[in-house]
């Protein structure tokens, strides 16, 4: 904000601070609610400061089991969701980087055909093909399994296209230099392509991890057992229509725990992002 007068700088900051407050307050309030007992929450007004039930609420939720979702504890849910989000993120990256590698660097019959087939799947979101996919999963006996939860979500045209675009920017000379240096396709992939793609991979990982973490429709369909639920599904099940039946303090704890891992991933991966933005790798 170079060249702005003092007063307009103050105004700008004030607007930003108000913005942050608007975004952050609900999250803060969720945290506050998660540290009070159910009685306090149900008897408005809810205090603005954290209460003294932090340890009790969190240990009950994490390890004690929650009645409304069949006595499953939140640590199981966290584990399930982590497995699902990681499997989807890693699986998607793995599959798409390899397909982009094939499409960009190899000349094989039907190359463009396969490219377009992958491209066309962009027009078929999960929701459109959900029933046939569900049928396939039932037939394969994959209901209530991690495979069933993740496999159908793994293929990703978007990520393939992103990698393809990136690979196309790699100069032909570099590829040829590697060939002259005696690097076969796998060496080239491992020694040159992967290291050059790492900022792309990091960015995609964050996006895909959060995508996997927040999946709703598919996990809802493909899991019946409570102990196979993801945290988002469980959260939804914990809220009853009758206000009094709902253990709001535990719901709030689950909410807080549900948003922590994505935040953690963003914060940890941020270093890579910034690096990717600052360094212009040629």
């Amino acid at each position: 904000m170079i060249g702005l007068s003092r007063s307009s700088r103050y105004t700008a900051h004030a607007i930003l601070i108000i913005g942050i407050f608007i975004v952050a307050f609900p999250i803060y309030y969720t945290f506050v609610a998660s540290t009070h007992s159910l009685q306090t929450i149900l008897r408005p007004p809810l205090p603005l400061l954290p209460g003294d039930q932090f340890w009790e609420n969190y240990s009950t939720a994490l390890f004690g089991g929650i009645g409304r979702i069949g006595g499953v504890d939140v640590s199981t849910l966290l584990f399930n969701t982590t497995v699902v989000a990681l499997a989807i993120a890693i699986g998607k990256i793995f599959i798409s980087i390899l397909s982009a590698f094939a499409i960009v660097f190899f000349r094989f019959p039907g190359r463009m055909f396969f490219f377009w087939v992958i491209f066309i799947t962009l027009m078929l979101p999960v929701e459109v093909r959900i029933l046939p996919t569900y049928k396939v999963m039932v037939d394969l006996g994959l209901i209530d399994t991690y495979t069933g939860l993740t496999l159908p979500l793994m293929a990703s045209a978007t990520a393939t296209l992103l990698f393809r675009q990136f690979f196309l920017t790699i100069p032909g000379e570099l590829v040829e230099a590697a060939r002259v240096d005696g690097a076969g396709p796998w060496r080239f992939f491992k020694d040159i392509l992967l290291p050059l793609s790492k900022t792309n991979i990091a960015a995609l990982f964050v996006i895909l991890f959060i995508y996997g973490w927040t999946q709703y429709l598919w996990p809802l369909l493909v899991t019946n057992r409570n102990d196979m639920n993801t945290i988002v599904i469980a959260l939804r099940k914990m809220v009853s229509f009758a206000d009094a039946d709902t253990q709001w303090h535990l719901v709030m704890v689950t909410c807080v725990l549900a948003i922590l891992p994505p935040i953690l991933v963003v914060v940890l991966m941020q270093r890579w992002f910034v690096k990717g933005l600052v360094e212009t790798e040629k």
Binding site: E173, E176, R179, I192
Partner: peptide, 20 residues
């Protein structure tokens, strides 16, 4: 023979150094 088996070395116009 492939480029690696010909035992030649090449210097490219844009150097083609491995950036990483």
């Amino acid at each position: 023979r492939g480029p690696a088996e010909r035992d030649i070395a090449m210097v490219f116009q844009n150097y083609a150094l491995y950036p990483h």
